[in-house]
Design a protein around this nucleic acid. Structure first.
Length: 548
DNA sequence: CTACAAGATCCACCTGCTCA
DNA sequence: TGAGCAGGTGGATCTTGTAG
């Protein structure tokens, strides 16, 4: 440990003082343990070796001050101070550490500041502690709104489970990896049944909580389906594919920050067998259904990693969904017929068309840029900003290296489809501002109107800027349509009880199940959604493929 | 451009302590 | 008791990622 020497300077004399007071020579180590019995017992149960236990005591007598700190220390030591007899590692969330630190007394904080050479005024953060202990403990995600509550209730319970798990494994296996992720331990098989019951109850409780608000909404069946998944099946799929996902992650060319971010997410997914619960946006700004509290990370993984993680499942998504939706909502006939041809296989894709128009090479590297550009068009980005986006100026660059030249930009903007799109969206914006709402006639009656809302940014700084609110309403409207288009899948999925959705990503979803069942189901699913789209004149289709 | 989640970091502001 | 400063807190803004 790099900080041993620093800290021992501060605390050694205190310990010496204690010892001088009670000069019992018999067995210094044993005596030391007796003095701070309760937390030593905990450390024993956690199988921190005696060698380390006594070492901790001599270096950090201050440990016994706070109960929460005692546990934190045990976790950190487990990782940072490993020896032959304490080989395991704990992963714990950054927020949990921060929380525990916030429970420290002022003296305690002062002590550690000194020990670690932290400048006064600078908070003791989780990352700082991780640095100090040079561990591979990773900061993980927790919902900040719920963290305090989670920590208060979870911490003691988790510790008990941890102890139980390790006690049960004593003598049976040499190693017993127990991880703490999001404050929840991965459990031994012995606990599994209990956990499944608890998870079932959790899913039921979640649905009951949502019921009063959303039961009458058109997406309720989907919400019910998503929140009734069999977690065991999901975690089996993920567990089997974990090595593939790691491989995919290591192959991905990426900067180290995003790599460690993804690694942390992956670890969290691996070691939490929690059900993925979904709910509509909490802020009520979007009709989209997204995962809640801790289940989100699967969505935030880079696409290729996520696909590797779900190998063997079928992934379905709508082809250029938003574009097709706006073509319909804003009556852009040229775009509509172009997309129809592309879907039928008569034409080619819109991306290809635009790349050809701008004279861009067909190696796929420009597609993400174009995609971002086109969607930005759909959501009302103004011309100068659009130009900056394409020419690689301005801030929002997302680490992309490609950009268009001035002449490529000029050629692209001359494309008739694009001009139509821009014209139509300006009309739509103007109309929305004039009416104070956006109306989508083919949605269920109660769901047709979308009031103008300020975006987060606009609400803060430009609360009077009405354009921004019109943009947001347009976004909500087309996102609702997207959800509406997917609704027929619920009926189909219910006909195949062996299958289930293991991830829902706004315009698509991933379905797990037996291979032959999936194969049989896929065409029916695609047919159902395509019918829905034909009914409303949306020029898109459901694309399904087996992830390999 | 929209929406979402979580983490890191900075800074304004508040609290509470010391000393004259 | 008020001036001045140290230390802590919470909000804003940035970042990462996802989906269109």
């Amino acid at each position: 440990m790099q900080n041993e020497t620093q800290a021992s300077d501060v605390t050694d004399h205190k310990l010496a003082h204690q010892r001088n007071k009670k000069p019992v020579k018999a067995n210094r180590e044993k005596k030391a343990e007796q003095v701070i019995k309760p937390w030593m017992e905990d450390l024993k149960l956690l199988r921190i070796s005696k060698e380390i236990r006594t070492e901790i005591l001599s270096k950090y007598p201050i440990l016994k001050e706070n109960e929460a700190f005692r546990w934190l220390m045990a976790y950190l030591l487990w990782d940072g101070w490993r020896d032959k007899r304490t080989p395991e590692r704990i992963v714990l969330p950054a927020k949990l550490v921060t929380f525990v630190v916030s429970e420290w007394s002022a003296d305690n904080k002062k002590h550690w500041r000194q020990a670690w050479g932290v400048k006064a005024g600078k908070p003791i953060t989780a990352s700082l502690m991780f640095q100090q202990f040079s561990t591979s403990v990773l900061p993980l995600h927790l919902n900040p709104h719920r963290i305090a509550e989670t920590c208060r209730t979870c911490l003691p319970a988790c510790c008990n489970l941890l102890i139980e798990a390790r006690t049960e494994h004593l003598g049976t296996t040499a190693t017993c990896p127990v991880y703490f992720v999001s404050g929840r331990p991965a459990l031994t098989p012995q606990h599994h049944r209990k956990v499944l019951q608890a998870q079932g109850a959790m899913q039921a409780a979640h649905l009951e909580r949502l019921r009063p608000d959303y039961q009458r909404r058109f997406f309720w069946p989907l919400l019910e389906l998503l929140n009734n998944t069999n977690t065991q099946q999901v975690s089996t799929v993920l567990h089997d594919n974990f090595s593939h996902a790691q491989e995919a992650l290591s192959k991905r060319v990426s900067n180290s920050a995003s790599l460690s971010y993804s690694t942390a997410l992956l670890l969290q997914i691996k070691h939490t067998s929690m059900p993925v619960l979904y709910e509509p946006s909490r802020k009520g700004k979007s009709p989209r259904i997204s995962p809640v509290d801790g289940s989100g990370p699967a969505l935030a993984l880079p696409k290729e990693v996520r696909q590797a993680l779900m190998r063997g499942c079928w992934e379905f998504d709508l082809v250029s969904a938003q574009l097709a939706v706006v073509a319909r909502l804003w009556n852009i006939e040229a775009l509509q017929s172009f997309l129809e041809q592309a879907c039928d296989g008569r034409g080619h894709s819109i991306w290809q068309e635009l790349m050809d128009a701008a004279g861009l090479p067909q190696n796929g590297s420009y597609k993400p840029l174009l995609k971002e550009f086109v969607y930005a068009c759909c959501y009302g980005m103004r011309l100068p900003a659009l130009k900056d986006l394409l020419l690689g100026r301005g801030k929002n660059h997302n680490g992309r290296s490609v950009r268009l030249t001035q002449s490529q930009y000029g050629a692209l903007m001359l494309h008739p489809l694009l001009r139509e799109l821009l014209k139509a969206r300006d009309n739509a914006l103007a109309k929305a501002e004039q009416n104070g709402k956006v109306v989508v006639p083919f949605l269920p009656k109660a769901e047709q109107r979308f009031a103008l809302k300020a975006t987060d940014k606009a609400a803060k700084k430009y609360s009077n800027e009405r354009r921004a609110t019109a943009r947001s309403a347009l976004a909500c409207a087309s996102q609702a349509v997207e959800l509406w288009l997917l609704m027929p899948t619920v009926e189909v999925l219910k006909r195949f009880p062996a299958t289930q959705i293991i991830a829902h990503q706004y315009d698509g979803f991933t379905v797990a199940g037996p291979e032959y069942t999936l194969k049989e189901m896929a065409p029916q699913l695609i047919k159902a959604v395509d019918e829905q789209m034909r009914r409303y004149g949306i020029a898109s289709k459901l694309d399904g493929k087996l992830l390999t």
